[in-house]
């Protein structure tokens, strides 16, 4: 029981964090078709901006300015780089952002070094929200979850209930028609890219104060955000949320489960045979927890390439 409750809690929070980081990419990929490889690096940028501003002015200023800085960086990238190579196609855009990821990471490393930085939440937020099975559950985890949920609600309403959202969504399907109706598409694209980057920046500032902030934080998420976007489906915020929670729960459950394929064979009386074969059969589920998201992504790509909630490829 304890195991289930704690796993669910951790899984949900981890999933929400994943959603926070990938929400912006869902937006960018869905609306512009740009698979921004550097997305997780905007998350990293947000964390470091948050860290710097917490020292200079305080935690909340960091939280406020991190998305703005990341958003402005997004504007520059879209306006002066992506737009230039748009005519060469999406693969070229992917490559460009891929180089960009290197640059962001290395510039940050240049200033902050290769070690972790001590980015901390304010002390008054450092308390246990409640105690469960004699373990204190940190309030900040709930705070992160709340930010992610707020992000989801705002994005969802923005896309489905406002005029801007309708234009943006229409642009996904019929860019030329939207342009013919007098909407300035380049500006829409710039805003979408900036918005997506800003979301990543906010996620960085929020999560960086709880999880380690260091040079590897982007790489750790670099491919995982793709997994979320692909599983969730093109541009679907709801899909991204579901995918994130799925991955979060999957990882948190499998980390604690010492089950192997051989054990499953044991159920049908072939356990010792499978153990003798070894290799994949005896790998513990907990040790391959990190492979699970990629396995899921593969299955989705091969079986339902439009993703869980997507309606086209």
């Amino acid at each position: 029981m304890e195991y289930i409750v704690v796993s669910v809690l951790n899984g949900v929070v981890h999933g929400l964090l994943l959603f926070m980081v990938s929400a912006g990419l869902t937006l960018i990929f869905g609306m512009m078709g740009v698979l921004n490889f550097a997305h997780a690096w905007f998350y990293m940028l947000g964390a470091y901006v948050g860290f710097t501003l917490t020292r200079l002015g305080g935690f909340w200023i960091g939280l406020l300015l991190a998305p703005i800085v990341a958003g402005l960086a997004g504007v520059l990238v879209e306006r002066y780089m992506l737009r230039r190579v748009h005519k060469y196609g999406h693969a070229h855009e992917l490559l460009l952002t891929f180089g960009l990821a290197f640059i962001i990471e290395e510039v940050i490393k240049l200033f902050y070094g290769d070690a972790l930085v001590s980015y901390q939440m304010p002390n008054y937020m450092r308390f246990a929200a409640f105690t469960i099975f004699e373990t204190n559950y940190p309030f900040y985890r709930l705070f992160m979850g709340a930010v992610a949920l707020a992000m989801f609600v705002i994005l969802y309403l923005l896309l489905t209930r406002t005029r801007v959202g309708i234009v943006v969504r229409a642009a996904t399907y019929r860019p030329t028609t939207v342009e013919a109706l007098g909407h300035n598409l380049p500006v829409v694209y710039m805003a979408v890219f900036a918005g997506g980057s800003a979301l990543a920046g906010l996620a960085g500032a929020v999560a960086g104060a709880f999880y380690p902030t260091g040079p590897n934080m982007a790489v750790d998420f670099g491919t995982l955000v793709f997994v979320v976007v692909v599983i969730g489906g093109l541009g679907s915020v709801v899909g991204a949320l579901i995918a994130s929670l799925m991955i979060g729960l999957f990882i948190s459950f499998s980390v604690g489960l010492n089950v192997s394929i051989a054990d499953l064979f044991g159920l049908i009386g072939l356990g010792s045979w499978a153990s003798d074969v070894g290799g994949l059969f005896t790998l513990q589920l907990s040790t391959i927890a990190n492979s699970m998201p990629f396995l899921l992504m593969l299955l989705v790509l091969l079986i339902r390439p439009a993703g869980l909630m997507g309606d086209r490829q």
Binding site: T223, Q284, S291, M297
Partner: peptide, 28 residues
């Protein structure tokens, strides 16, 4: 079976799968 960036994503997933499996797979 996929083209464009979806092809790239499948190849990426396959390689990441190996990357995450390899350190736990002693025999191989």
């Amino acid at each position: 079976q996929r083209t464009g960036v979806y092809f790239s994503m499948v190849t990426l997933a396959l390689a990441e799968l190996l990357f995450t499996l390899a350190p736990t797979w002693n025999a191989l």
